[in-house]
Design a protein around this nucleic acid. Structure first.
Lengths: 134, 134
DNA sequence: AACACTGTACTATCAATCTAGTACAGTGGT
DNA sequence: ACCACTGTACTAGATTGATAGTACAGTGTT
């Protein structure tokens, strides 16, 4: 599972939303899989159930998750993907923010890029762990 | 000068603090230079003077800026640089956050790194602009 | 002396986020 | 029928960030 950074300026519901999306893109969650219940995930992440519910609701609204009433929440069979233009805009915004931070810390372009690749590799490995049984 | 993104989750005072640091590392501000007055910068960025004052105060506390009472605020002659360990930790955190976002958007490692390099180049060029007269 | 600037320091208010607690309807297993 | 689980919905409080407004002391210019 993923971690929550309570000191981050990014709201927790957003961190959870991104975390679920990451697990799907990496294959740790596939269509039809059940996601943890609101209360379970809240206990695991040491977070309020309302906050988890908010994240799930957003993912449901966007067609990434689907609810079976009384049963639980599952990854949609046909997970809708966001428009390409919107995706590129978000990626660009995130890159700009990171590049700005790297610059303010005096990091070179090469160092900034290398640090991203390292983090990317680490995240994918962490997310795939505990998932070899599939 | 730099821009403020009011929709970002990062607080404005932090964006201003990073912006000043960027201008210093890029050379758009050198030791001895005056930074805009609290009220001027607030008007330029369309932000409350209190918010700018908060950013300046943090930079003063860290030895990046220095105040001459009644005159203004200036870039310190011997700008203290943060500890290497702390700098690396911040860079790493920022890289992790960006990599996580890129992953949740389904971007490949190469695409994520390339987008950073592009943003980095763009930022340095923008910041150096209007500074050729030095 | 008067004025226009500087930074600094308050108070008050608004919005967003997170938390705690409670409640209710739907589902499945016993 | 009962129980344990599911998502959902609501109230209320604390915290943080940003805003508006006001005020005061120090500095340089006129």
């Amino acid at each position: 599972m993923f971690d929550i950074n309570p000191t981050s300026t990014a709201p927790i519901w957003q961190q959870i939303e991104e975390g679920i999306r990451r697990m799907i893109t990496v294959g740790a969650l596939t269509p039809g899989d059940a996601v943890p219940s609101v209360r379970d995930l809240a206990r695991t992440l040491r977070v309020n159930p309302n906050t988890v519910a908010r994240s799930y609701q957003r993912l449901i609204d966007r067609g990434v998750l689907a609810v079976r009433r009384g049963e639980g929440t599952y990854v949609s069979e046909a997970p809708s993907q966001p428009k390409k233009s919107e995706r590129n805009e978000k990626l660009r915004d995130a890159a700009t923010q990171y590049a700005g931070t790297a610059l303010s810390l005096g990091a070179s372009r090469e160092e900034a890029a290398a640090e991203v690749e390292t983090s990317y590799e680490r995240l994918t490995k962490e997310l795939r762990r505990g998932n070899e049984s599939r």
